[in-house]
């Protein structure tokens, strides 16, 4: 199982890539493996959401996984390709399986996210 070291993580299994004031969010390799084959991704509506809010839902044939906002901000982009190819979350969780992007309203919130070692310690 792969956990890139240049990403931040939440204990609820989201990964976050910080580039300037933009945060890209997806679910970790562990999360996709636990859920099994993803058959539907409910993407967020664009708009402002607080850290901790449920932004998206990832559904496998047996379970629903919530994708929780790791930082507050405006959802500026969603990965519309997942509407037709939700399985990309399984095959490429850190690449083509990204879910949405946030323009952070309070970038310092990112400091409290987990680094890879801290995240792996939660598994």
């Amino acid at each position: 199982m792969e956990f890139p070291t240049d990403l931040k993580y939440q204990a609820t299994h989201e990964w976050v890539k910080i580039e300037g004031d933009i945060a890209t969010v997806g679910i970790s390799d562990h999360a996709q493996d636990q859920l099994g084959e993803i058959v539907f991704v409910e993407l967020p509506d664009t708009g402002v959401l607080e850290k901790g809010a449920v932004a998206a839902n990832v559904e496998s044939s047996k379970a629903v996984g919530e994708v929780v906002m790791p930082v507050s901000g405006e959802v500026t982009a969603v990965n519309e390709n997942l509407e037709d190819e939700p399985e990309k979350v399984n095959s490429s969780p850190y690449g083509e399986g990204w879910i949405f992007k946030i323009k952070m309203s309070n970038p310092s919130e990112a400091d409290s996210l987990l680094d890879v070692a801290a995240y792996q310690a939660t598994l």
Partner: peptide, 8 residues
């Protein structure tokens, strides 16, 4: 067992 290869 819930799945072997995968549910699908």
């Amino acid at each position: 067992p819930v799945k072997f290869e995968g549910v699908i």
